[in-house]
């Protein structure tokens, strides 16, 4: 979890660059959130389904968004979006259960990224093993806008790792995976796997982690956030 000063410096530096308007607005909207209390800050759990694990070459197929408002998850505001990709889904379709014909009804990448920016503007992103998802998002931004921007996020995996280490746990292989982490907080096992359900799982995990940290009302987001420039 990065120093707030560093995050602000990164944000400030990129604000000095000439950026397309949506990205400028996005940067401007995130700054006031950084000093808020956890309970007040707008948070958005995200999960991406990709064709592979390489941000440079692989593509995003779907995005799940689940917000956290005042420490609770309003399911009415959960969203799931498909993105039309070039080429075929390939073997990863077996993992996600998404097949090509579903993707025909999906948005184009620029449409999808505009939608993503408008939905998450002024929100701190949440993901499990966040750097991967964040890098994917940034790569898509470069594809659509020609620029990327620093994104502020909370990584539930990093939080879990820190907590485990603080408690002198020996980290075993796979013990930080989403499912394994959830089990430690008595969170239910979800059989389904898609971007939306995983985003929900991640949001629930964060709530549980935060509750375990003690006084939720006093917690500020700056203790949790990180950034990738």
């Amino acid at each position: 979890m990065a120093n707030l000063w560093w995050i602000k410096t990164l944000l400030w530096r990129s604000k000095t660059k000439v950026l397309p308007l949506p990205l400028q607005n996005y940067l401007a909207a995130i700054t006031p959130v950084l000093n808020q209390r956890f309970i007040d800050a707008p948070l958005m759990a995200i999960d991406l389904e990709m064709t592979g694990l390489d941000p440079k070459n692989d593509q995003v197929i779907s995005i799940g968004l689940v917000p956290i408002v005042k420490g609770e998850i309003p399911l009415a505001k959960a969203q799931h979006l498909m993105i039309a990709i070039s080429g075929s889904v390939g073997h990863s379709a077996t993992v996600h259960g998404i097949v090509d014909h579903q993707l025909h009804t999906a948005l184009t990448l620029p449409e999808a990224m505009s939608w993503f920016l408008s939905q998450t503007e002024g929100h701190i992103l949440i993901a499990h093993h966040a750097p991967l998802d964040i890098q994917f998002i940034q790569q898509q931004l470069v594809r659509c806008f020609g620029h990327s921007i620093p994104l502020v996020f909370i990584d539930t995996l990093a939080i879990e790792k820190k907590r485990r280490l603080q408690q002198q746990d020996i980290l075993q292989q796979g013990s930080l995976r989403l499912g394994a982490s959830r089990a430690r907080y008595h969170l239910p096992v979800y059989s389904a796997h898609n971007a939306l359900v995983d985003a929900l799982s991640c949001a629930e995990l964060l709530l549980a982690q935060v509750a375990a940290m003690g006084d939720v009302k006093k917690l500020t987001v700056k203790k949790l956030i990180d950034v990738i420039g």
Partner: peptide, 14 residues
């Protein structure tokens, strides 16, 4: 129902 639910987490600590 599902659509109108909000999810909360309650910890023994509180």
């Amino acid at each position: 129902c599902a659509k109108n639910i909000t999810v909360g987490y309650y910890s023994k600590a509180s």
